[in-house]
Amino acid sequence: MSYFSLALTLIFVLIPLLLSKTFQLGLERDTIIATVRSIIQLLLIGYVLQFVFDSESYLFIFLMVAIMIGAATQNARKKGAAIKGITWKIAITLIFIEILTQGILIGFGITPPTAQYIISISGMVIGNSMVLSILFLNRFTAEMENHQDQTELILSLGGTPKQAIHSQLIAAIKASMIPTIESQKTVGLVQLPGMMSGQIIAGADPIQAVQFQLLILFLLLTNAAVTSIMLGFLSYPTLFNDRMQLVRKSE
């Protein structure tokens, strides 16, 4: 694509701007900010990736992945503000899932250990885990609040914290995993996954693009299960103290 045709794509920004103005949606400012930010961020990352790919240095790959994990943690932690030490719990979960995924992929020789593969797959895995963490934390916090009387009941009858929180924990884990599983049922029928579309447009053989996309989809299943369950079991103990009481907000 030439820079001239890239500039023409701004038509797709002008349309929502005009609509926002006509219907007084008040979204002009946000649209412009979003556009400018995406141009700067993506161009920047483009140059950074080019540099890292050219250097072929594991130090830079490691730094890239660390930055991704840091940014994803920063983003997800706000949803779990009620849980003590949530920042570390999310970070540990993301690090674990990254090591697990790359360990299997590179260990079994499924993908080569090059910057292209490691960084693109890491981006998908970490981004997906971040969304799952947010879904999980949102649902878990809501379940906790809505069923606090049940938690208290089970504790009052001599149940352990794990027993007292079990049904809420399971509900939140399931709720955060379901979108991943559901979206895979219709994949290819309703929507072509972004990465596959990208590869096809870039000229790759569709069958090869499909194979690679399948790898990603299966990977995301593991990702969903491990992220939700791990974050769940790391989170719930901090809601209780050593006297098996629900920790009060003021403490």
Binding site: D149, Q150, E152, L153, I154, L155, S156, L157, G158, G159, T160, S167, R243, M244, Q245
Partner: peptide, 30 residues
């Protein structure tokens, strides 16, 4: 031990909270 204490000192809470399910499941809970 909190678990022992709570079995010896039973409480019927003001809001009479229930876990989802049947009466039998609630009686079975302890």
């Amino acid at each position: 031990d909190p678990v022992e204490l709570r079995r010896q000192v039973g409480i019927a809470l003001q809001s009479a909270p229930m876990v989802g399910g049947t009466v039998m499941e609630n009686l079975h809970l302890p």
